[in-house]
Amino acid sequence: MRALATSLALLCAGCTGSQTVLAPMGPQAAQLNWLLWSFILICGIIWLLVMFVLVLALRYAAVPSQRGERRAAVIVGVSVAASALVIIVLTVMSYAATRGLSVAADDPLVIRLRGYQWWWEVTYTDRRPDRMLVTANEIHVPVGHPINIELSAADVIHSFWVPNLVGKQDLIPGRRNDLTFTASRPGVYRGQCAEFCGLQHAHMALLVIAEEPAAFEAWRDAQLQVARPPETIEQEAGRTFFVSQPCAACHTVRGTNAAGTLGPDLTHVASRRTIAAGLLETTRGSLAAWIADPQTIKPGNNMPMVTMTPEQLRAVSAWLVDLQ
């Protein structure tokens, strides 16, 4: 069984940003994985037993007799009692796992995650307000440090699920949920919105990037910077275009006067691996394609097509791809 588990896990190990229950990368997921395989084992045995009895029952040529009836009654009674016992065991196991998962961590890193149709806003809290940080669709976490995610939703219900790390938890308008997990190994773990939330529910992914604490701090310091000033004339034109167009009404780029909040914060958009909630890899080409026609790439999403000339498009994408 273990062998099967590992081979199934290996099947997925290669893929980019793995998203599977079968390859746990943190203590919470590991505990759930253990629970999963225990349940599969127990249920598998029950199923085999019932099938075995079914075959016997079909092949057994009964001679009607009082004794046969009585024996059957005893067997049925024993089976029911045994089922009750199994159920008690399963309930206790499940209860124990729940307790194990709900212990509060001390000094966790608190991250706020807010679900929007169809992207994620990520806020890093800090005791110092100037170290608060807003980004989108990508969560960096230090390996080995407990993370506490505060979940809320801006519009409809979404669900945060990164199966390699922890089970899912909903983001519900008007409510707040909490989830604790720890990543024990560096890596990129993909997660996906797991509650149906409308047209682009299928394209509402996010990445959790677990890195060594030093790398994490470096990332965080970089993210705290305002947007990098344009270097080329084209980038300069891109920025001018961006802040004078509807873009600025929806997006924030710290260091410019673009301060909209309807769409993802773009201050360091190019530092993120993907855009549009996991849909496209971040390249100049994909940025340009996205801006040129977001509705074909992700039909129904909340970013409208803004008309612009090819030069303007080139300029904007040149600027954005430089926002490391």
């Binding site: 629970l35 249920c43 199923w47 099938m51 729940t98 089970g167």
Partner: peptide
């Protein structure tokens, strides 16, 4: 007989999803 074979698998997977922690992984 087809019912026996399949329903019991479904019933047992029901018992699996009835477990709160397990369900957080397989729900939806």
């Amino acid at each position: 007989l087809a019912f026996f074979f399949t329903f019991i698998i479904g019933g047992l997977s029901g018992v699996m999803v009835a477990s709160v922690p397990l369900d957080t992984q397989v729900h939806d």
